[in-house]
Design a protein around this nucleic acid. Structure first.
Length: 462
RNA sequence: GGCCCCAUCGUCUAGCGGUUAGGAUCCCAGGUUUUCAUCCUGGUUACCGGAGUUCGAGUCUCCGUGGGGUCACCA
C-alpha cells in the first residue's frame, strides 16, 4: 500500500513534466491500493495565485486522475511548522542566525571571488553573546558537518553527498514563515508518505530534507527521482517548444488518454508495449522500470497515439468532445456515418472537426489546382448527367452502397473510368481532391444537397 | 566553476556477460483505397570515444567527451 503525493506550488499552470510525475505517483498509489494525496506548496505567500491552483485541479480533472482526501494547503499549517521549529530550537538542533541579508551577500561574494562554493559560514551556530540590534533573525537548522548524507534512490540507486555540500540552511525566514525544504519534510512525514516520486531537479533537496527528518526523528520514505523531459532537440523544455501547459493539449484537440499514454512511456516502459489504457497502466506500473536517463518530447508519437485513440473512440463520445470545438452533431441522424467517414483522417479532434465541417458546409471555393486537373473535357456534362441520374433514380437512395450503384451505373453507361466522375464530383462536394469516401459523403448529404452542390460547382467553375 | 546525474536507431525504448542488438514512431517503397487518410507488407538507421576486467562486454571498472541537474530569507 503506497501513499504518494503530488505537491505543486501554485505559481502557474500544470506543466506536462509535472503531470508525468503526478501520473507515476498516482499509478503507484492506485496499483497498490494506497492513497494519492495532493498538497499545495504555498509557503511563499507573495507568489500564490488562486487561478494557478484552479488550473492544476482542472487539469487533473481533465485527465481523469483523482486524488484522495482533502487538498492540503501548507499556508494553513503554519502553526504546525512553528511548533516543530520551536522544538528544534529547544533541543539545540536549530538556532537563530542574525546575519543580515547584506552581510550574507557580502560573504557569498567574497567566497565566489576566492573561487569557493558560496555557503553559510556557521557564524551563529554556537553563538552565545548578545545578538546585534535591529535584526530579526532567521532560523537555521544544524546540518552535519562531516561525513556524507546518503540514501538509496529508487531510480538512481545509491546516492550520497558530502556533508559540506549541505550547510545550515534556513528553515524559517526572518518574518517567521517556514521554508520549502523544512515543510516538505514535515508534511511528507506527517502525511504518512511511503514513496516520494518527483523530478530529479529535487535530487539535491533530498539531503536537506533528510537533515530535517533526522532532527525530528521521522523515518524516511522511499525516494524516486525521475529524469527530466527535454524538448525534441534534447534541451530543457520551455514554452518556446510549444505546449507545456496540460490544458493547452485539450485546446489542441488531444484526448487525455493519449496524453497520459504518451507521458507514461517517457521514462517508463513495459517491454515492447506501446498502448496502455489507464487500467493497464495501473496494473503494470512498477517504479523499478523507471528510466535513469532523461527523455525527449516527441510530438509525432503523441499525434500517433492521439489518432489511435480517436479511431477507437465510440462515435457518441466523439460527438460530445467535438461540441466545444464548434461542431455540434449530437443528435444528427447521420452521426455514425459522419464519424466513421472522418475519424480515421484526423490526428486531433480539431482536425476531425475540420473534416466534418468540410462535409457539412457547402464549399465556398474550389481548389484551383484540383479543378484544373479534374475539370477537363466533358467533366461538367458528366456531372450534370450524374445529378440527373440521382434525381431520377427509381430506388430510394439511402445508404452509401445505394449511391455507389449510381456511380457504377454512370461509369458503365458513359463508358468512362471512375476518375472521370469521381474527381470532379469530389471537388463539387468538398472543394478539394482529398477527403472521405464519395459514397459516404453523398449518403450523409442526401440527394438534394448532393445535387445542389454539383450545380453550384458547375456554375462556379470556369 | 564545485558537487552530482545521465549516455542503444533522428525520437521513445527493450536488453540486465554469450541475441543476426528487438519493438514503436518518423522517413522511404510496395499493396489496399476512384482521391486523401486508415490498414497491410517490406526497407534504411543505433550501442559517444578510449583504455582496462573477462574465454567473451551495449551490459562491469576507469578516463575522456557530450548533455542535464544543483549550488536562495523560490518552490
Amino acid at each position: 500500500m503506497a501513499v504518494t503525493r503530488f505537491a505543486p506550488s501554485p505559481t502557474g499552470y500544470l506543466h506536462i513534466g509535472g503531470l508525468r510525475t503526478a501520473l507515476f505517483s498516482w499509478l503507484w498509489a492506485r496499483k497498490t491500493g494506497g492513497k494519492f494525496l495532493l498538497r499545495i506548496e504555498d509557503t511563499d505567500l507573495a507568489r500564490n495565485s488562486e487561478e494557478a491552483l484552479e488550473a492544476i485541479i482542472q487539469a487533473f480533472d481533465w485527465v481523469g486522475m483523482s486524488y484522495d482526501g482533502e487538498v492540503l494547503y501548507q499556508s494553513r499549517r503554519f502553526d504546525i511548522y512553528k511548533k516543530y521549529i520551536q522544538q528544534l530550537l529547544d533541543e539545540g538542533k536549530a538556532y537563530k542566525c542574525y546575519m543580515s541579508k547584506e552581510e550574507l551577500d557580502a560573504l557569498r561574494e567574497s567566497q565566489m571571488a576566492a573561487g569557493e562554493r558560496p555557503r553559510y559560514n556557521g557564524k551563529y551556530r554556537n553563538f552565545a553573546g548578545t545578538p546585534p540590534e535591529g535584526i530579526s533573525p532567521v532560523i537555521r537548522i544544524k546540518a552535519p558537518q562531516e561525513g556524507r548524507i546518503s540514501f538509496v534512490d529508487g531510480v538512481k540507486g545509491e546516492f550520497s553527498v558530502s556533508a559540506d555540500e549541505v550547510d545550515d540552511f534556513i528553515i524559517a525566514r526572518s518574518d517567521g514563515t517556514p521554508t520549502y525544504n523544512f515543510v516538505v519534510a514535515i508534511d511528507d512525514a506527517l502525511m504518512g508518505l511511503s514513496d516520494v516520486i518527483r523530478g530529479d531537479d529535487h535530487l539535491y533537496n533530498t539531503p536537506k530534507q533528510i537533515v530535517v527528518y533526522n532532527a525530528l526523528g521521522f523515518s524516511l520514505p522511499k525516494f524516486y527521482h525521475v529524469a527530466m523531459i527535454n524538448n525534441e532537440q534534447g534541451k530543457k523544455l520551455s514554452k518556446r517548444d510549444g505546449a507545456t501547459d496540460v490544458m493547452e493539449y485539450k485546446k489542441l484537440g488531444f484526448l487525455p488518454e493519449a496524453l497520459l499514454n504518451f507521458l507514461v512511456r517517457l521514462g517508463w516502459s513495459h517491454g515492447d508495449q506501446e498502448i496502455f489504457s489507464l487500467e493497464e497502466m495501473v496494473a503494470l506500473f512498477e517504479p523499478k522500470n523507471l528510466s535513469r536517463s532523461s527523455s525527449n518530447y516527441n510530438l509525432d508519437k503523441l499525434l500517433w497515439l492521439n489518432a489511435h485513440y480517436i479511431k477507437n473512440k465510440p462515435n457518441a463520445d466523439l460527438a460530445e468532445l467535438l461540441h466545444p470545438l464548434g461542431v455540434d452533431i449530437r443528435g444528427h441522424d447521420k452521426i455514425e456515418l459522419l464519424l466513421d467517414a472522418t475519424k480515421e483522417r484526423g490526428k486531433t479532434l480539431v482536425e476531425l472537426a475540420n473534416q466534418i465541417k468540410l462535409i457539412l458546409h457547402r464549399p465556398e471555393e474550389y481548389d484551383e489546382k484540383a479543378v484544373k486537373k479534374a475539370f477537363k473535357g466533358e467533366a461538367k456534362e458528366i456531372l450534370a448527367e450524374f445529378a440527373h441520374m440521382l434525381q431520377s433514380w427509381e430506388k430510394t437512395l439511402h445508404l452509401p452502397c445505394d449511391y455507389h450503384e449510381v456511380l457504377e451505373k454512370i461509369v458503365e453507361t458513359k463508358e468512362i473510368g471512375f476518375g472521370k466522375i469521381g474527381q470532379p464530383l469530389r471537388i463539387s462536394l468538398l472543394g478539394s481532391m482529398t477527403g472521405s469516401g464519395l459514397d459516404e459523403i453523398m449518403a450523409i448529404l442526401g440527394v438534394e444537397e448532393t445535387v445542389a452542390r454539383i450545380h453550384c460547382a458547375i456554375a462556379a467553375i470556369e
